[in-house]
Amino acid sequence: MDKEVQIGNLKVKVLRDTCIGAASCVAFAPTVFQLDDERKAVVIEGANETAEIIMMAAQSCPVKAIILTDATTGEQVWPN
């Protein structure tokens, strides 16, 4: 099961199987996303970053592998 990490009001999850390691998310939010040794993006525990930067990182993902959920409403914010 893909790990979900809460940062601010956003729950951030990377769909490991979908991820192709383009690393645009790492470029946008290096404190939130890193590539592991299989060149798959993983969310770093306890990171903090603005919602805008995380959103841009998610939007830059070529395969929409980053899922963002609003922690209060539980509603999926990206991909919309």
Binding site: A22, S24, F28, Q59, S60, C61, P62, V63
Partner: peptide
């Protein structure tokens, strides 16, 4: 104004590099 490129567009990272 926030970027309005398509998701996964190469422009995001070119813009970031610049």
């Amino acid at each position: 104004i926030m970027p309005n490129w398509c998701p996964g567009c190469g422009n995001f990272t070119i813009w970031l590099s610049f």
